[in-house]
């Protein structure tokens, strides 16, 4: 591991409570040329954000247990860590006015092209 030091990949915090979906989400992150940091609930996600400073993007599912958890997290991030980019996926219609600024919401099932394109744009 230590023989070379390739430039560090942009880190994306993936927040998802469903393990199968977590696999899909981390795959999108990796395909976009980023490194996924996983959190399975918002408390974990906040702890990671408080502990680390290398997270550029948070990629979260809005449909987690406690129906508003995903959106709460997004609003909290925009409040506490304004520079962090936000990508969200949702199975429900969303109210565009409630989306934090610069945040992007995409629907389910997944549109791989749009998700990966957005992640790449955030990573630049």
């Amino acid at each position: 591991m230590g023989q070379s030091h390739p430039p560090a990949l942009p880190r994306v915090l993936v927040v998802e409570d469903d393990p199968i979906l977590m696999m899909a989400l981390t795959e999108f992150v990796e395909n976009a040329g980023c490194e996924a940091v996983e959190a399975t609930n918002i408390v974990e996600a906040i702890q990671i954000l408080e502990a680390r400073t290398d997270i550029r993007t948070v990629f979260t599912d809005l449909d987690m247990r406690g129906s508003t958890a995903g959106m709460e997290l997004a609003l909290l991030i925009r409040d506490r860590w304004p520079p962090i980019e936000l990508l969200m996926v949702s199975s429900q219609p969303w109210d565009a006015t409630q989306i934090p600024s610069r945040g992007v919401v995409l629907g389910k099932p997944f549109d791989r092209r749009k998700i990966e394109a957005t992640l790449r744009r955030f990573a630049e």
Binding site: D18, I20, L21, M23, A24, D63, V89, S91, Q92, G107, K108, P109, F110
Partner: peptide
């Protein structure tokens, strides 16, 4: 909501 979530899981 459930259908879409399920379809996402199917994709995954």
């Amino acid at each position: 909501h459930r259908l879409k979530n399920t379809l996402a899981i199917v994709q995954s």
